[in-house]
């Protein structure tokens, strides 16, 4: 093959490779807006069960998506979705949702359970789930005002060892009765 031709072929293949690789990643809003069909516009879910994802810390978002993709964290569907994105794309979405306002939910709850949960919160959960579970910067999920079925599913998964609990949480959860746990979940869901 003449040197000139092979050089031209090499150059064109580099250009072709370049055009694929240089294709910019989708923008953060382009990626994040695809979530809205299930998680609600701007990550604020109308419920009843799919959680709000607006306002959660970027660290938590990145960790959770990685765990979903690697099946370290149980899901019905999120593993299938999480495997569709690169680490960089997930980081773009994480920053996007971290910057969005968390909207309060309005759900029917049991006032007596909410009150009982309030009494249990400080002693059992308050050290890590700051500000009644409303603080994103504690790098756990936002529990305050989250949809109750989602909180219940999460706790079922923790208790069934489908999802790993931090050691301190495991100790606390093991000592609580089913009624106490339900009261705590109702308490978190009731926060505005």
């Amino acid at each position: 093959m003449p040197a000139k031709k092979s050089l031209a072929m090499l150059l064109s293949s580099i250009l072709m490779l370049g055009s694929t690789q240089l294709m910019a990643a989708p923008s953060a809003s382009m990626l994040a807006d695809t979530c809205a069909g299930c998680h609600g516009t701007d990550g604020s879910s109308m419920g009843p069960a799919i959680p709000n994802i607006a306002g959660m810390s970027a660290e938590y978002f990145n960790t959770v998506m990685k765990e979903y993709a690697e099946d370290e964290r149980y899901s019905t569907i999120m593993g299938r979705i999480a495997r569709g994105y690169t680490k960089e794309e997930i980081a773009l979405m994480a920053d996007h949702f971290a910057g969005l306002k968390y909207m309060s939910t309005n759900q029917k709850l049991d006032a007596a359970k909410v009150a009982a949960g309030g009494d249990l919160y400080e002693k059992n959960c308050g050290k890590c789930h700051d500000e009644m579970g409303a603080l994103a910067d504690d790098d756990s999920g936002i529990l305050a005002s989250q949809w109750l079925p989602y909180l219940q599913y999460s706790m079922e998964d923790f208790q069934a060892d489908k999802r790993a609990m931090p050691k301190k949480m495991k100790k606390k959860v093991e000592k609580l009765s089913a009624a106490e746990i339900e009261a705590l979940l109702q308490f978190f869901a009731s926060q505005k």
């Binding site: 069909g37 609600g40 516009t41 879910s45 109308m46 419920g47 569907i77």
Partner: peptide
């Protein structure tokens, strides 16, 4: 989740 999806996509 299907019901949540319905509520969210129609609101979106």
């Amino acid at each position: 989740y299907a019901y949540s999806w319905f509520n969210n996509i129609t609101n979106d």
